[in-house]
Design a protein around this nucleic acid. Structure first.
Lengths: 220, 220
DNA sequence: TCGCGCTTCGTGAATGTTCATTCATTCACG
DNA sequence: CGTGAATGAATGAACATTCACGAAGCGCGA
């Protein structure tokens, strides 16, 4: 009997779920192996072993090694894109509260993905032009909520007159610093204390002098 | 006739000079090729071509590919170590003037070595433990003059009470940002305007409120 | 001044290994 | 049985490293 269209749709849905779980399986393994050895040293065999699948199967779900790298990096950048804004919304409508909450969450995500974040710096050069463009775009998208909070804050007179674009990238770099300079900071800080210490620093520069006292609690 | 010791010394000196110029030739080529392709894609053949020497000769001056990477990175870090302090000394004895001068020079050096700086982030994972330790040590050494200026400034009451270690690493990361995020900043800034804009930001947080006005000229 | 060994510099093809990718085959399930 | 999932050995290309060989400088004796 010919399959009806509903049956076909179910099958496709099932396949999509399985495919996405296979992809996840491989991507998680990729982070582990790359953390151990770096992308170039990672042999497909080692990746297959870590993911508990065969080498051949990986090629059913990914076009090749480089595509795995791109997918791994996009995966982590997606987390930033999707998890920053909600954290800021939960902080209310005050721009400075929102900014602090966004930065704080940013550091948390970095902390949960220490190796993957370093990866985005290390291996992005490996990607082709298209891949690199994707990354740049995602990075700009990610910074948008922070940027908005900064714009609102300046607008409302709560913040000094500052270069919003520069500041939003600085905030991201400082958050990335928790990963990039982890070897240096880990003995002194936890992710929490790092976020607080950095907030104390940046808020000093951002918040307009006459409002500083109102936000001391953010940099306890 | 047996060579006298003076003769031997001269010969050795000549050889040392030639060797160091060969090494420079190769290291300069390495920066060019790695910028184009990254360390792992760089074949020794391509490096040899760029340096206008044969593949075999490279192995006379370097132990292997990885040693070239380490030498390339150490080379650039040495520049930071050797050129920051003089720039600060030229700025006089005021801690804040010194800090600003050091940061400014730091950005200048980054600008002169845009690709090599990015390299230190990208490829350090490739090195073995010993190489990585060398790098960490050099980075701490490099930050020392900035750190001293910060300590003096806090001591003298010119600066807010801040975490000196954190701040000195932040300053370095922000300077590195000119390389790491060059794709984003290049359309808006030159190295000079980048340094000034960032100084305006960090000095706002660093300089004690009652002294702010005295240093406005640093962030014109 | 010339030529003759001797040492150092420099070359690049040959070697052996590593590894991404493919594909003929097997497996599991409906 | 038929179909898609999964396997992993075979293939072929890339490439770091070596090394046998040639060229070039240099002191020295005739």
């Amino acid at each position: 009997m010919a399959k009806d269209s509903a049956g076909v749709q179910v099958e496709e849905a099932v396949r999509a779920v399985r495919a996405s779980s296979r992809r996840r399986q491989v991507l998680d393994a990729a982070v582990v192996v790359m953390q151990r050895t770096g992308f170039h040293q990672m042999s497909m065999q080692a990746l297959a072993d870590e993911a508990k699948v065969s080498v051949g199967l990986i090629y059913k779900y990914f076009g090749g090694k480089e595509e795995i790298l791109l997918a791994t990096i996009v995966d982590i950048l997606d987390q930033f894109r999707d998890r920053i804004a909600p954290a800021m919304d939960a902080a209310g409508s005050d721009p400075i509260e929102r900014l602090a909450a966004g930065f704080h969450r940013y550091v948390q995500i970095v902390d949960e993905n220490l190796h993957a974040v370093a990866l985005t710096y290390r291996e992005s050069r490996t990607l082709d032009q298209r891949g690199r463009d994707t990354l740049k775009e995602l990075e700009v998208t990610t910074s948008a909520p922070l940027r908005d909070a900064l714009e609102d804050g300046v607008e409302a007179g709560l913040m000094n007159d500052l270069d919003v674009d520069l500041m939003s990238f600085d905030l991201m770099m400082i958050a990335h610093g928790w990963s990039l300079k982890h070897w240096h900071f880990a003995p002194k800080f936890t992710a929490e204390t790092y976020a607080h210490a950095q907030l104390r620093f940046v808020l000093e520069a951002i918040v307009a002098p006459e409002h500083r006292d109102s936000y001391r609690h953010l940099a306890s």
